[in-house]
């Protein structure tokens, strides 16, 4: 069961902080454990009397989730009652270093190794360094397949990019 966010009172201030707060509830459908804010794809928020503008950085150019994310952002910001424009931009390349510390913790807690060069990847279950990359390519463009030789678990790791 997914609890709906309570709608802010009509008098609530519509500013960048309010927008960011609501964006904390939006997730990339392929990485549901962390918000798009923790994923580091929110590049710019601008609020005017007429509209809210949000610029997002795609993680991968061919990411098929972009339209879904755009729709989720518009839906999440709808309680603010302003027209919302979502733009994807390459003007700053998204890199895996943009994932926040909290984002990295949450990825690890759900069995995804956060992005590191292959030699630095640790098993998200037992923290062992005795891991092997099975394939640089995983179920989505942004993930690789690993195997832990200590706890004998396969796991996925975010690609450093």
């Amino acid at each position: 069961m997914i609890a709906l966010q309570p709608a802010p009172r009509a008098a609530a201030r519509v500013d960048a902080a309010a927008v960011r707060g609501l964006l904390e509830t939006v997730h990339d459908p392929e990485i549901p454990t962390i918000s798009i804010v923790d994923l580091g794809i929110v590049e710019r928020i601008a609020v005017t009397e007429a509209a809210i503008e949000v610029d997002l950085l795609p993680t991968f150019v061919g990411c098929p989730a972009l339209e879904v994310i755009k729709g989720s952002v518009i839906e999440a910001l709808s309680p603010l009652g302003r027209e919302t424009h979502v733009t994807f931009t390459w003007s700053v390349p998204w890199t895996s270093e943009r994932i926040s510390a909290r984002g990295r913790e949450r990825l690890a807690a759900s069995g995804f190794a956060p992005p590191d060069e292959p030699a630095d990847v640790r098993c998200p279950y037992c923290q062992s360094a005795k891991v092997a990359m099975d394939s640089a390519f995983g179920p989505t463009a942004c993930r690789s397949l690993f195997y832990c030789r200590d706890c004998r678990q396969p796991f996925e790791a975010f690609k450093p990019i």
Binding site: F60, V61, G62, C63, D134, S135, F137, T140, L145
Partner: peptide, 20 residues
């Protein structure tokens, strides 16, 4: 199997690059 995943992922990247 790994190559099926890899080649599919690479093809998806290339088509995404073409789209951009």
């Amino acid at each position: 199997l790994e190559e099926d995943v890899a080649m599919s992922s690479i093809s998806q990247d290339e088509l995404g690059h073409a789209r951009a």
